[in-house]
Simulated assay, not measured.
Amino acid sequence: MRILVTGAAGFIGAALSERLLARGDEVLGYDNLNAYYDVRLKEARLARLTPHPGFRFVRAALEDRPALEAAFAGFRPQRVVNLAAQAGVRYSLENPHAYVESNLVGFMNVLEACRHGKVEHLVYASSSSVYGANRKLPFAVEDAVDHPVSLYAASKKANELMAHTYSHLYALPTTGLRFFTVYGPWGRPDMALFLFTRRILAGEPIDVFNYGKHTRDFTYIDDIVEGVVRTLDRVPAGDPAFDPLHPNPGSSLAPYRVYNIGAHTPVELARYIEILEECLGRKAEKRLLPLQPGDVPDTYADVSALMRDTGYAPTTPVEVGVRRFVDWYLRFYEGTQN
């Protein structure tokens, strides 16, 4: 198939593009390579994709509507995976306008391009952060997500609402994936595992929020990519069991679905750090701090809907995933701290 992947220089986008190319798909990568984190890492991810004859790349932003429309017109994608976004909960407290421009205006442009390009299926990144102040665990797609605690979370919930509107009005099949704390080789430098590894190797203290007591459903990158591919290949139709008098937020009479995609195994942050220490052979000096604004104490994905509909089954325990990240990190940075 011809598949357009936005955010193709990003962590998940690059890994997904590699997987799609390996199975014989044509991929058009679209990314603005912004400076939210080290552009050299994004360029290194792209360098693994560009030699492939089935890969093409456009450097532009989602909010650049003429550039996006030209990419759709030239490539004529059959399916689209929208992973480009302004990421990060904490950064949304510092620069809220970036989230409106990329996650709202940019996503609107994607929806319009898919509609006019008669795309067969749009899969897009949502986030576990949409559960916000909800404390019922595990988080299920049937739960209400009306109390976001960061603008990032609000922008992702808005994406789900916007997608449903297009599924309803224009019969555009859409699937939203609520990602749960993705980690692994080629990961994002603003995420805890990357930050902790760099600081521990440099002999610097690490900031441990919520005193290490919060839990996260850490999900290994290969398991995430497997779930995205399975979802991409399953074009949703209207749910015949949908009851308008008792609506299920995860489905619709329209061709629309939302799924959690996680490991279904929450791990306490303190344990995560212990595993990292074991892999590095060093102890961390910890600065224990309270929970940060915008963060939630716990995440735990109920992935039963995704398992039922696609056969998704995460297989990578956190001990294995962290070891693979550390091995990659040491190779990539060759012992230097960048």
Rank of each mutant, 00 (worst) to 15 (best):
T310F: 11
P96S: 08
Y166F: 09
A14V: 08
H52E: 04
R216L: 07
L137H: 10
P297N: 10
H121W: 06
L41Y: 01
A87W: 03
L111C: 04
H116R: 13
D25Q: 12
G24E: 01
I3V: 14
F107Q: 01
G212K: 04
T215R: 15
A67Q: 00
G281L: 13
R234H: 08
M307I: 10
E43D: 09
A85R: 03
S126D: 01
G203I: 05
G184K: 08
T265L: 15
E204D: 09
F11I: 07
M1K: 14
N134D: 12
I275L: 12
P205I: 08
N248E: 10
N210Y: 06
R287D: 08
E268N: 11
L151I: 11
T6K: 04
G88R: 04
S150Y: 06
G321C: 09
P51Q: 08
P290H: 05
G7F: 05
V141A: 13
A133N: 07
D309H: 06
E277I: 10
R199H: 05
C279E: 10
Y300E: 12
L280N: 09
A140Q: 11
A44R: 13
T165W: 12
V149W: 03
E26T: 11
P173Y: 03
Y300C: 12
Y211P: 01
H164N: 15
D146L: 07
D327W: 04
R90I: 10
G250S: 00
D25H: 14
P51Y: 02
Y91F: 14
D190V: 10
V182N: 12
R282M: 13
V149M: 12
A305S: 11
L269C: 15
V81W: 08
R324I: 07
A85W: 01
I12K: 10
A87F: 04
Y30G: 01
R48H: 07
E142W: 06
I275D: 08
G10R: 09
V318N: 00
L28E: 04
Y166V: 01
A87D: 13
S102C: 12
Y312E: 05
S92G: 11
T231R: 07
A284Q: 06
P51H: 09
R135P: 04
R287H: 12
P317I: 05
S251V: 00
A305E: 13
D25E: 15
D302Y: 04
L161V: 10
Y30N: 00
R48Y: 05
F218R: 08
V27F: 02
L276I: 02
Y166P: 05
G7R: 02
